[in-house]
Design a protein around this nucleic acid. Structure first.
Length: 562
RNA sequence: UGACCCAUGGUGUAAUGGUAGCACUACAGAUUUUGAUUCUGUCUGUUAAGGUUCGAAUCCUUAUGGGUCAACCA
């Protein structure tokens, strides 16, 4: 068989195959998907997978995608979350065809319940939740019905209306479907359809005091919107039987549910509950802490929508459990940022270098500035001026007094190129009384100027630098993985015991002056260091940058091995 | 010890009865005024045992391993 890997013949994932065959079989003229978040928390990268999937499928097959908030539990939901979710989806680059809420359908869903009651398929149960749990049986033992299940249609109708009318307290009664107490699927053992909650709902206010359960709202909402393919995660597989049962008994548009494996990423957690815990217990500074796997955290960290979409594309979609190496996410953001980020020079841990033969007095204003390209990957990015001088800073680890073989940077008697400037040679090492290096005396080669090098000198290494007297001090926040173990959720005990307490380091940096005029959505590569962006905590007097991701460092890796 | 879902290199994901491919990672080399990028190459895989077939990652059986289900959460 010939394998064709050209983009237009790319193999389809299992969902695309289903849709493809549904479409070619004429089952639907066009498809409609939906992204159904519950507004009770912020979206994370796992949701991004679902968003890319649902919206991507819509786009790919010329269909549409709705945004529907699954807001059937008023006690945990809030408009703050609604707004953040909408912002995140837009930021990722997707547009929904319609903005809907499950709460829009409360009246309709209530009528569905009435219909089930009338058909003898639902009853009002006065049992406590403990009693219901007891009667439910176990996976190996079937459950049993109680006396309430024998209520007449009239009685059930009256009671259910009384529930709606607010005649009962929370927990006093529930509406249950009458299905099969001995089903091997626990969800089919007379599942609860409605419960009483005298709570304020973020949209319907105090109109309702009974709210439908997920299983009695989701499928109906899909159906009412004519969703063709309702895509959810694996843990809902067992729910599909109930999903189909409701649609079938109600004889409404047959939306169909399909399940895929949720995203897991190494060294982090991906459950709203756990993320909420990290936020509430101040292990991180809010939902948008750059260490969080939330969309807002990644955004603040400097990730781009392109890189996240690309990541979601690369991880694929299937039905098996998976744990994606966080390195893949980092690869995706490096790949994008490398193309778009302008380069700047910042020295983090400086040593002063005095260029002994550089005569400032004889230089004119012009020659104090050198030109350097903004982005070698993008010719259109142009160039900028950088200030040179007799005293400069270089990175402390770009000098070694006793260098190993193949050390290409500065060392006594050795030469190195200063990026976009000159080749220098180290003549002398100055130390203080503790033996610490305080200064390097170097000579430079005027003919070796970048772009017009006629010195004939050959050097292996090029290092970054800043003018020691012309720079700005910045703060940089360096992030590491939030957890010390690959899969915190799988470890023994409380996942929080595996938190990496060193996941945030704040360091100082000396930056070239051009960094003074930056906007918050610009991304930069600090040469030979990594990718950075301005943090929202910045002020005019104090620039704070987030490190999005480091550059790959082959030298550091080799050094580690030896 | 019931039901359901799943099993392809280190990690993901293709191959839909006919050459096990792609990406990331790792390793080696070339290029490089970022030890980055880019480029080239290499290593590593069908959970096991039976069966069907000219031919099985693919179909069947069993085993093994992993996951899910007993919330008035979604």
């Amino acid at each position: 068989m010939i394998v064709d890997n050209s983009p237009n013949q790319k193999s389809l994932n299992f969902l695309e195959e289903i849709i493809q065959s549904d479409l070619s079989a004429g089952k639907y003229k066009s498809i409609l998907t939906r992204f159904p978040p519950e507004p009770n928390g912020y979206l994370h990268i796992g949701h991004a997978k679902s968003i890319c999937l649902n919206f991507g499928l819509g786009l790919h097959f010329g269909g549409k995608t709705n945004l529907r908030f699954d807001d059937t539990n008023p006690v945990t939901e809030d408009t703050e979350y609604v707004e953040s979710i909408k912002e995140d989806i837009r930021w990722l680059g997707f547009q929904w065809a319609n903005e809907f809420y499950a709460s829009d359908y409360f009246e309709q869903i209530f009528q569905f319940a009435i219909k089930l009651i009338e058909n003898g398929l639902a009853y009002v149960d006065d049992s406590t939740s403990e009693e219901i749990a007891m009667q439910k049986g176990t996976p190996t033992q079937s459950g049993s019905r109680n006396k309430y299940s024998e209520r007449t249609v009239e009685e059930n109708l009256k009671l259910f209306n009384d529930m709606r009318a607010g005649k009962f307290k929370d927990g006093e009664k529930v509406l249950r479907a009458k299905i099969d107490m001995s089903s091997s699927n626990m969800l089919m053992r007379d599942p609860i359809l409605y419960r009483i909650k005298h709570a304020h709902h973020h949209r319907t206010g105090n109109d309702w005091c009974i709210y439908p359960m997920y299983d009695f709202a989701h499928g109906q909402s899909d159906s009412l919107e004519n969703i063709t393919h309702s895509i959810c995660t694996l843990e809902f597989i067992q729910h599909r039987e109930l999903y189909d049962w409701c649609i079938n008994k109600l004889a409404i548009f047959p939306s169909q549910q399909f399940e895929f494996a949720r995203l897991n990423i190494s060294y982090t957690v991906m459950s709203k509950r756990k993320l909420l815990e990290l936020v509430n217990e101040n292990y991180v500074n809010g939902w948008d802490d750059p260490r969080m796997p939330t969309i807002s955290g990644l955004r603040r960290r400097g990730y781009t929508p392109v890189s996240i979409r690309d990541f979601c594309e690369k991880i694929g979609v299937a039905k098996r459990e998976n744990l994606i190496d966080v390195g893949l996410l980092e690869f995706c953001v490096r790949e994008h940022l490398n193309k778009i980020a302008e380069r700047r020079m910042v020295v983090f841990d400086p040593i002063k270098v005095v260029i002994t033969n550089y005569e400032v007095a004889t230089q004119n204003e012009e020659s104090l500035f050198l030109t350097t390209e903004n982005n070698p990957e993008d010719p259109h990015a142009g160039s900028r001026k950088i200030s040179f001088g007799k005293e400069i800073f270089i990175e402390r680890n770009d000098f070694m007094e006793n260098p190993p073989k193949k050390y290409f940077r500065l060392a006594p008697g050795q030469m190195v190129r200063l990026k976009s400037a000159f080749i220098i040679k180290c003549d002398e090492v100055i130390k203080n009384e503790h033996g610490e290096i305080t200064e390097l005396r170097c000579t430079y080669f005027p003919e070796s100027k970048s772009g017009s090098d006629v010195s004939g000198l050959q050097v292996k290494g090029t290092i970054h630098w800043v003018n020691a007297n012309e720079n700005i001090a910045i703060e940089v926040r360096e992030y590491d993985r939030l957890f010390k173990v690959e899969n915190p959720a799988k470890e023994e005990g409380d996942f929080k015991t595996y938190i990496n307490i060193d996941s945030l380091k704040t360091v100082k940096g000396f930056a070239e002056k051009s960094l003074n005029e930056v906007s918050s959505n610009e991304r930069f590569q600090f040469l030979r260091k990594g990718f950075y962006c301005l943090d929202k905590d910045s002020s005019k007097d104090k620039l704070i940058f987030n490190r999005t991701v480091t550059l790959k460092d082959g030298w550091a890796k080799d050094a580690k091995k030896n």
